[in-house]
Design a protein around this nucleic acid. Structure first.
Lengths: 228, 228
DNA sequence: CGGGATCCCCCGAGATACTG
DNA sequence: CAGTATCTCGGGGGATCCCG
């Protein structure tokens, strides 16, 4: 069999043939946040070799998950965009992200938080928290490490996006450490997190408790000390 | 960064570091059906190099997803078993399997159906079909290629397991082709499937329509001809 | 015979440089 | 900006061997 194939007529094997390629899921994660140029992807995936990025994009295009299209107008750059078929993958990737996050307590040496990972984390966390029932729309900006993302809580809907929001009601700034992760897990209460200085809050502080209730990613119940 | 790591403090990246390893998800798929010996795994994963299987099992054990334990008594062989942490992965793998199956119409040259893949397919298909409401327990044996699996429909619950069932109410035999896949997708009706000879049915034939309604894995709506 | 370990080959990932 | 070209090297693929 060709080395990336498994020789089994099995949905999971077919998925693994595509997503098991190195960097493939992270490329899709980034593109599921929104269309990106080649250099945007390279910047959002620190450490990816350029030839690997080029090869993966070509493969994902052949697999029908990504399309490349020239942007019209004066800007002649090329953007990569996910297809509907890749959109169908979002629930599965979110489930994977949720599982992985449940086994993740502390960043390893040198690990960073990227913009796309933060957006994905917020989206997954919104699915794991108590459904909001805000009377008015609340916007929130979250910073972790160098990454910035925002969330918009409107009624019962939560959307997460990259970058700043022009007029956030609440801004949460966490360092590169596990502060935000502990907050989302609920092992560190909102007040304690602020008191210990692991997160910094500006804006309407009274919204912080709501935030911690709306966004939730628990730690795995079956975690021993070894599986950091 | 070590070559299997991604250097990102991100749940999806952590998951990809484990599941992106070659053969890892198929090993877990097989073990999620039930405990297996080394040689059982090797037999159920045609083409896996022995060194890779040994290395993966060691890694999965270190990652806390697999435990190896000696079977007591006269049988001194070793069985591999999934941990609770790996059980938590089941929904995500099922979502991946469902997505992969949606893009899978026809077996490629030389592709086989294994027992574990058939069991997994039935479990995923049960989640995608109409919830059953059988008054009595119905058991069904399904054969595809060389693989045999069975399903037990009891009230609103469906369980899938490997191998035969002592007294099935219904037995469906499909060849190595896409016959069973088309039946599950609904593109081939039960009567047509029998009439065209792509599946063979023994037992209570009147249960076949119920089977096709209870087990369902649709084709992706966004599929073009290229993405077989 | 089950459960691996070892060896060799080679593909593909990683890193960097370079070009249309 | 958006990739190719080139090189090195670790890890996978395949076969064989070994040990209890």
């Amino acid at each position: 069999m060709r080395t990336r194939e498994y020789g089994q007529f099995c949905g999971l094997a077919r998925a693994a043939e595509i997503l098991g390629q190195r960097w493939a899921v992270l490329i899709l994660r980034d593109l599921l946040v929104g269309p990106r140029r080649y250099s945007d992807l390279a910047a959002g995936l620190p450490g990816i070799p350029s030839n690997v990025l080029a090869a993966r994009l070509k493969e994902l295009e052949q697999d029908g998950l990504v399309v490349r299209q020239a942007r019209g107008g004066a800007d002649r750059s090329i953007v990569y965009r996910v297809t509907d078929r890749a959109e169908e993958l979002r629930p599965a990737l979110d489930a994977l992200a949720s599982w992985g996050a449940a086994g993740m307590r502390v960043p390893r040496e040198g690990e960073v938080v990227t913009e796309a990972s933060l957006v994905t984390a917020l989206r997954v966390a919104a699915a794991g928290g108590r459904p909001p029932g805000a009377r008015r729309t609340v916007t929130c900006v979250v910073r972790a490490g160098d990454a910035v993302a925002h969330a918009i809580v409107s009624g019962t809907r939560v959307t997460a996006g990259p970058g700043e929001h022009p007029a956030p009601d609440l801004t949460i700034s966490a360092g590169s450490g596990p502060g935000l992760r502990d907050l989302l897990a609920g092992t560190l209460g909102p007040e304690a997190a602020v008191a210990e200085g692991v997160i910094e809050v500006t804006g309407d502080r009274s919204l912080l408790a709501d935030f911690a209730a709306t966004f939730h990613v628990p730690y795995s119940a079956s975690l021993t000390g070894s599986a950091a």
